[in-house]
Design a protein around this nucleic acid. Structure first.
Lengths: 183, 183
DNA sequence: TGACTTGCTCAACGAGCGTAGAGCGAACGG
DNA sequence: CCGTTCGCTCTACGCTCGTTGAGCAAGTCA
């Protein structure tokens, strides 16, 4: 009945998975359609036929929900916000790895991360009782962004060798100070 | 006597200035030799003759001291470290704008930023009296990195509209908590 | 079974890139 | 004053990229 449709869905997912991995590793520009095709064991032209162009592939790779069990939560860093503010955030600061990797060099990725961050800032700020709730929330989330970038994207030794739990513990008082909560 | 040498130095500096600006704005890959040449009103081949290749131009643009009065210190964010720890840092977290823009997509830029940050972490950690001084210093500097990225590279609304002074004030208690100092 | 659909491949195009080499004209040095 | 240097430009090569359109074999459906 639908052997065709199934094969197609499988191909699409293989391509998206390869694209996610390569975009996350090398960024938008350095990732070629040809490389994605090779990683997915597929012809480059097939990607065009499915996704239209490279920009669209990136958009879907960054937007669409991944089927993998999800890359281990960035340090449970977002749980810190739950800890300190009682607000639950859906994703790590800035969204997917693929989006974050390209956020400084690809305008569309920058917009995606900016939007994701803005949403999280808005959510967090509702739990802060202060005139400058939004600014405080922004500083909290950019702090998490900085730690994530430093540890995962840059691979800073001092952070790579530290235990995630310890990082969370050291960060907690710092975030509390930003949130302006007493204890 | 040296009209030749002077003209050359002027051309080199024009090229380096244009390269710094474009690398900082678009990143390494999206910046073409041809674009730098156009911005400097110079022939592309001249850049090759002076700097050998694109990678070398980037290295020098990122490394060599700029003649401009220096891009306004990233938020006086590094002064915070002086404030809290009594340690003076030479550059903003991660070094030049050009290096930071490409740090997630260009290995050499990543190495440059990583080294710059490691040095600053080392310096800061000497002023922290704690078993985990280095980890604490790393978290302090990645915090500053995150705020800088959020405000200047991503252009987060909540941070762009806030006054630099206010950001510094809100960040101080947070950094103090990380530094493990009492007051 | 036969006409049609469709996932997929192959070969190629035009554009833009980093880079190289020959050559020109003005500054230099004896 | 003349041979040499050298900053600079022009032209073009080879490569890789995103993208296209024709074509094939296998699945679909009457």
């Amino acid at each position: 009945m639908n052997e065709r449709a199934e094969r197609r869905r499988r191909s699409e997912e293989k391509i998206l998975a390869a694209a996610r991995a390569l975009f996350a590793e090398r960024g938008y520009q350095a990732t070629t359609i040809r490389a994605v095709a090779a990683a997915a064991a597929v012809d480059p032209a097939l990607i065009m036929q499915f996704f239209g162009n490279k920009g669209n592939l990136f958009r879907l790779a960054v937007t669409a929900p991944s089927e993998e069990p999800a890359t281990c939560d960035p340090e449970r860093l977002t749980e810190l916000v739950l800890d300190v503010l009682g607000v639950k955030l859906a994703e790590g600061p800035g969204g997917s790895d693929a989006a974050m990797r390209s956020m400084l060099t690809h305008p569309e990725a920058a917009a995606h991360v900016r939007d994701s961050l803005s949403t999280q800032i808005q959510q967090a700020s509702t739990a802060i009782d202060d005139d400058e709730a939004e600014l405080r929330a922004a500083l909290m989330l950019t702090t998490l962004l900085g730690v994530t970038v430093g540890k995962h994207l840059l691979g800073l030794e001092s952070l790579r060798t530290a235990s995630p739990e310890r990082i969370v513990e050291l960060l907690r008082p710092s975030l509390r100070a930003l949130a302006n909560v007493r204890n």
